[in-house]
Design a protein around this nucleic acid. Structure first.
Length: 423
RNA sequence: GGCUGGUUGCCCGAGUGGCCAAAGGGAGCAGACUGUAAAUCUGUCGCGCAAGCUACGCAGGUUCGAACCCUGCACCAGCCA
């Protein structure tokens, strides 16, 4: 990839929803390495798939020969970016500090800290914690016009809502604007990227730099990812897909991509994959011809699971998926293979063999015993891949795989393991 | 602070004394069809094997009987100050 085509590349991938002067940005890229930044606020112990779009966009821009600054919002995380619907609950400073450390580690994995275009991690608490209220109001506040501030969509929506907005959250754009100014002064940063919902905050920074420094800098916003079925991207039935393997297992992460809707998979490839345009177009063509083969889903699942969790975890996820969804008899699996596969799915430990109804509840596959019975009645419950027909059934010792495991399934793809622990 | 209207199951929403575990829609779940996809169709959708229990903002009351009537409280919205 040459230095000059990164804007075209991002466009083709559908990663540019909004930008400041695009021609000027092209020229900046052409003229040499651009120092750019993208910020992540610590609002949870881990980043999620939505954040991954931003991280990977940074990675692309770095690979095109530019210098990334990964910003973790140690300060902005204490204030809270205004959500459209309601005021945020403030988190304790110690909690936020802990999350800052975790996010820094997560982001770092996707950037290159060596060589000519080495990345750097920064924390906006570094330049705000020592700042006085007077300095904030005199040195920075003078550059912000309230008329403009209340016109920003995030603020305007809240002003027009019953929830209203606190002065705390109203001030958020000032802090984010200051970040850009500070990074411009310290490192010559001239581009900020972010999600399109951040557009107001991105322009707060470009406006501030224009006024304070007399310089024109750039901002680039990626679009909100929309799925064909209208549901929010990055969520499954069990909730948000996190990048932290403790919060979302690599197996679940792999399954998320494997289960992508045919209609979405092309967009996902463009947004998330680092394959070349030719490779992606080939995959799109093959998927259109033979959707049943799900080549694109497999390719996506492989690439992203490997990128986020490593090759070893990817292999495990594949092996587990094959074992659990395979046609073969589960009893034929090697104990090690079975144990590894079952480690990827929810597990319940029991001291004795309970009726299937209870096991379904214990394993989290049914919310209540009534629901579990219903599932059996409907023919949706499986024990070791065999349909359960008797509501009152209790597994026998002979059903135990390798003397201690049972594999329960509800519907086509909800699996759980039950381990018998006899004392 | 005052007045008015409202608060029903995951969400929306009907229900104004027994026929209400509560219409209808959406979401969810399962089945059929498939490809661990989508669409479609079918079933299901408080807890309980059942008897029954718990539920219509909260607490009391009236009544043989209350989601429905009365009282108080809380919260939400609109209008007025």
């Amino acid at each position: 990839m040459t230095v000059t085509d990164i804007v075209d590349e991002l466009r083709w991938r559908g990663l540019i929803a909004l930008s400041t002067d695009e021609d000027a940005l092209r020229k900046a890229f052409a003229d040499g390495p651009v120092t750019f930044y993208c910020g992540f606020d610590p609002t949870a112990p881990s980043l999620h798939l939505g954040n991954l779009v931003q991280i990977l966009t940074m990675r692309r821009i770095q690979q095109a020969g530019n210098l990334p600054l990964g910003l973790v919002g140690g300060a902005t995380g204490l204030i809270g970016d205004p959500k459209p619907t309601a005021e945020r609950v403030l988190n304790d400073p110690e909690v936020v500090a802990g999350w800052v450390d975790r996010l820094r580690g997560q982001i770092s994995r996707f950037l290159d800290f060596e060589g000519e275009y080495a990345a750097r991690m920064v924390n906006n608490l570094d330049w705000t914690s020592g700042m006085s209220a007077i300095s904030l109001l005199r040195d920075v506040g003078k550059y912000f016009r309230v008329n403009n501030m209340i016109a920003k969509e995030a603020v305007a929506r809240r002003l027009n809502s019953d929830a209203g907005i606190s002065y705390t959250e109203f001030s958020y754009q000032i802090l984010q604007g200051m970040d850009y100014l500070e990074l411009n002064r310290r490192y010559g940063c001239t581009l900020q990227t972010g999600g399109s919902d951040q557009w107001g905050n991105l322009t707060a920074g470009t406006d501030l730099i224009r006024k304070a420094e007399g310089k024109s800098v750039h901002a680039l916003a990626t679009p909100l990812i929309v799925k064909a079925d209208g549901t929010k991207f990055g969520k499954t039935e069990s909730g948000t897909v996190w990048l932290d393997p403790e919060l979302t297992t690599p197996y679940a992460f792999y399954q998320f991509w494997l289960n992508a809707d045919d209609r979405d998979v092309s967009n996902f490839l463009r947004i998330f994959s680092f394959r070349t345009r030719e490779e992606i177009e080939e995959l799109e063509r093959e998927t259109a011809e033979r959707p049943a083969a799900r080549l694109a889903q497999r390719a996506l699942a492989e690439e992203l699971t490997t990128l986020v969790h490593g090759a070893e975890q990817y292999e495990r996820a594949v092996a587990a998926s094959k074992a659990l969804f395979g046609q073969g008899d589960l009893a034929d699996l090697e104990p090690a293979t079975l144990a590894a596969a079952l480690a990827e799915v929810p597990k319940a430990t029991v001291a004795e063999l309970l009726p299937i109804v209870d096991l379904l509840v214990e394993a989290g596959l049914a919310p209540s015993r009534s629901a579990a019975r219903r599932t059996i009645k409907e023919g949706g419950a499986y024990l070791n891949n065999a349909k359960v027909t008797d509501e009152e059934a209790t597994p026998a010792d002979s059903d135990l795989l390798h003397g201690r495991w049972l594999v329960l399934r509800r519907g086509k793809r909800n699996l759980a393991a039950v381990e018998l622990k006899s004392n």
